[in-house]
């Protein structure tokens, strides 16, 4: 039991760091993801191709390698950032295509008749998208988007390998400092992760249920 009390300050700091990583790279990934999704539906072919390649490449590279890229190649390209901002950049870049795909699937989930109806009463591209498709897509996008953020929460642990003092790194250290109560220390860390992920999952579930009723 002493181990629990011993590790609490470090875990608390790590938990806050994990939340910070989640919040900042979450917002970043959302912004970049919306941009990429917009590029993918835009009428300009070169932007569409760029967005597709961006999504395909980043989705098929392990997060570990994306972070390696940030820690290794970005400094050569002239950044003199610390590991923490580099981890933020890596997590943002890795999560953004998943955000874009969630938005895309929400858009595609709106029945085609809705857009056709809008077009047939004379609405243009902007009107169709902003007045008819987007409001309906937004509701369907929220649950998969929350799932992306749940995944991001779990992915922040990989930043621990790259010298960011977040919860997983603190756990790693705690297991070494308390060899007699490894299980306890690990379950403690797991519960702290669950404190973030389970409420997010419940919110996603509740919204999903409401959306289903409305359709």
């Amino acid at each position: 039991m002493d181990a629990i009390i011993d590790v609490t300050p470090a875990y608390f700091a790590g938990f806050l760091m994990t939340l910070q990583l989640l919040a900042i790279s979450g917002v970043g990934a959302f912004v970049v993801g919306v941009l990429i999704a917009t590029m993918r539906i835009s009428p300009v072919p070169s932007l569409r191709v760029f967005a597709t390649v961006y999504t395909e490449v980043l989705r098929n590279v392990p997060l570990l390698l994306v972070l390696m890229f940030c820690a290794l190649v970005l400094p050569i390209l002239g950044s003199d950032l610390d590991y923490y901002p580099l981890a933020l950049i890596g997590l943002t870049a890795y999560t953004s295509p998943f955000v874009a795909e969630a938005i895309r699937s929400g858009f595609n989930g709106v029945p085609v008749g809705q857009a056709e109806a809008a077009r047939s009463i004379g609405m243009g591209f902007t009107q169709t998208v902003t007045l008819v498709v987007l409001p309906q897509a937004a509701r369907m996008v929220v649950p998969p988007l929350i799932n992306v953020f749940i995944a991001l929460t779990k992915n922040t642990s990989v930043a621990g390998i790259f010298f960011v003092d977040e919860l997983f790194k603190q756990t790693d250290a705690a297991t070494r400092d308390n060899p007699s109560s490894v299980i306890l220390v690990l379950i403690y860390a797991a519960l702290l992760y669950l404190v973030i992920t389970i409420p997010l999952g419940l919110i996603a579930g509740a919204i999903e249920k409401r959306v289903v009723v409305m359709r």
Binding site: I150, T153, K154, N155, T156, S157, V158, G160, I161, F168, T171, D172, T175, L186, A189, A190, Y193, L194, T197, I198, G201
Partner: peptide, 14 residues
């Protein structure tokens, strides 16, 4: 819920 909510990294470590 438990298994889904914790990072894979932590699970492997566990």
């Amino acid at each position: 819920e438990f298994v889904r909510g914790i990072p894979v990294l932590l699970m492997i470590f566990f």
